[in-house]
Simulated scan of single mutants.
Amino acid sequence: MSGQFFIQLLNPGIGLLFAVAFFLLWLNRRDRYVAYAAGAYTASAIAFLILDVGPALPYELHRIPANIGFLATGALFAAAIIRRYGLPVPWRAMAVTSAVSMAFFLWFLLGSLSIGGRILSISIGAGIIAAMVVRALWPIKKRYVIDRVLFWVAALSALNLIARPIVLMSLGGGFDSYDGFQQSVYWTTVQFTQAMVSITAAISLMVAVAIDQISELRRQVDDDKLSGLLNRRGFEAKAGSALRRYLDDDRPVALMIADLDRFKQINDSYGHAVGDAIIAAFGAHVRAIGPAEMIAGRIGGEEFALLISSAGIETARQFAEAVRIGLAPAAADRIPSTLVPTTSIGLTIGTPGANLSALMHEADQALYEAKRTGRNRVRTFTPISVRQAAGGG
């Protein structure tokens, strides 16, 4: 076997290797975007096998399924990246682009014969599909380095697919036959760059899958399933770092602790299922009305903590009242009609140099005052010196 034959096996070998790898990942993590990636590399391997290894058909008809496979590779990989971010996949736009690309390809294959025209038809079509990824990811906040890597892989792929054939064909003057085409600098460049892009794209997406897996495990560790909020560990970790950031930026911040009133009596009288329903309703209610940057957690059996930024005392009190007043309606369809759950809330405002532990202690004192004065109310922490001054002491 010649060295050229082994070179021809490079891209289908890479495609099959990564197709198997992504399929195994999908078996472990049933995310649709991982399945799309497996499909993309399967299509790539089949397309290269048809084109470079399989038997030639009359009128070069074997090039039709091969190039359909190349376009399917681009579309499925674009879908994998876009779907990872929970965005709608532009299937219709990709299908139209692929259909137009194949129409031009067929014209240059069966009508006005032109190898250069066929190259441009498929490369530009695939480049436009890659550009759809760039357009979809452009406005998204890129939290991790891998998010930027995926964006630039798509951008460079689009540029490579669109610009490369135009530049090389203008320098080389086109191709008169497929023998000349396969011996050309262009085809050598395609074989090399496609292998590099395939490896880079696959490794980047695998890293993204690993990061998603770690994030999911972290959420499982930090989240409270019943309330849909953070658990105490998750709240303290996120709220602590957020509080330091807010105070360093001189942004007002408020912390409140809410406690469901007479919760033990509710469990004893109505059963733990009703108590769980109230906890779930509280979590859903807080998520529904809370600001985007709110950090909320269930820090005890029936106790919750909420950290909100850009909130002065009046804004914080209004939010706390909305939480208190809205609990009963939020839980109404989950519990017996004879039961009206209430909550008491203690509120404090962050001051320069404060830490989370100190604020939680202050909010706890305010919560104790709310309980002591009758429950189902909001109380704001007042330092002893201020209380003494107000009392004339």
Rank of each mutant, 00 (worst) to 15 (best):
G54K: 07
S184E: 12
Y186R: 08
I214D: 00
D31W: 13
G116Q: 12
I46L: 13
P58K: 00
I115M: 14
L61I: 07
A21L: 10
S309V: 14
R148W: 14
A331F: 02
L150M: 13
I119H: 02
K141S: 08
D222I: 03
V190G: 03
Q220N: 11
T188A: 12
E321T: 01
A328D: 04
S309F: 05
F6P: 02
D212I: 02
G353A: 11
F304A: 08
P55I: 02
M1F: 11
M169C: 07
S309W: 06
L71E: 03
S114K: 08
A280V: 09
R92D: 03
F108N: 13
G326Y: 04
F6N: 05
M169K: 03
I128N: 04
R29Q: 10
E236G: 01
A305P: 12
F18R: 02
G374L: 06
G290M: 08
D224H: 06
Y59A: 12
M206R: 00
G297S: 10
D224N: 13
E314P: 10
G290S: 15
M1I: 12
P165Q: 11
D52M: 10
S177M: 05
G117C: 04
V153P: 00
V209Q: 00
G326C: 09
L347E: 10
R232G: 02
L307H: 12
T200S: 12
K142L: 06
F5V: 14
F18E: 02
M196E: 04
I266G: 00
P252H: 11
D276K: 06
R92H: 05
R245M: 07
Y41F: 15
I308P: 11
F381I: 01
E293M: 11
R375M: 02
